[in-house]
Design a protein around this nucleic acid. Structure first.
Lengths: 108, 108
DNA sequence: TATCTTTATCGTAATATTGCAATATACTTA
DNA sequence: TAAGTATATTGCAATATTACGATAAAGATA
């Protein structure tokens, strides 16, 4: 008990919920929004932008990267992060399609 | 330690991450997708559609309802659930806007 | 009223997440 | 090479989530 029963859901459901989960925290929303705002690969100053310690920010960055939402390129002793367009596009498409279906709905 | 430091983020960031969090579980993705698919208010058979116990499903439904993603109307001793279009539209808009910004980006 | 059906709540165990201090790693520069 | 800078990892405490058996609550029906 306690662990999510992923084996009982479809690959699509598990995959989209994993992607969604990566943004299910205000710090990770803030990181992605910041990367979108500055419109360039960011090396080094993400920690300064957030009210969290360096290890905590590093952990959130790792989660975003594992989920495929951001990309990180090594540049000297710094790392340049930027948002992965395709992941955001996938979320956009998922909710767009759902929204279209709901608009046609006769329910409620 | 351990609790999310919501007080350090903006209301918008907290609010969108709360909405996103509601779908950060395959069971809740499955529930919402099922409600969209059947295109009608569903009374009673959501539990039969999911590989989880009745209390667990009830708990997930409660989370979706609290987050505003679904609506529940009492109908006799059953409850009719359906997706709240505006919540899905909000998620769609959020990722659409972000996607547009990224398409214009010169980064990476 | 007694029973059935449907959904919610309580209590609890297992697991996951969040956050940070301490420390390690890796690259840069003096 | 030594010191500095940037990021990652480890280890751990606090908290949250997930899941379900048992039970309660509320309306339907015999």
């Amino acid at each position: 008990m306690g662990a999510t029963k992923t084996e009982f859901f479809t690959d699509k459901q598990n995959s989209i919920s994993t992607l969604i989960k990566a943004l299910a925290h205000p710090a990770r929303v803030a990181i992605v929004e910041y990367l979108v705002k500055v419109d360039t690969c960011i090396c080094g100053d993400i920690v300064d932008e957030l009210p969290l310690s360096q290890p905590t920010v590093s952990q959130h960055l790792k989660e975003l990267k594992t989920a495929g939402l951001i990309k990180g390129n090594v540049d000297g002793n710094a790392i340049c992060y930027c948002v992965d367009e395709t992941a955001i596009a996938r979320l956009r498409d998922y909710f767009s399609k759902m929204s279209v279906k709901l608009e046609k709905s006769k329910c409620c």
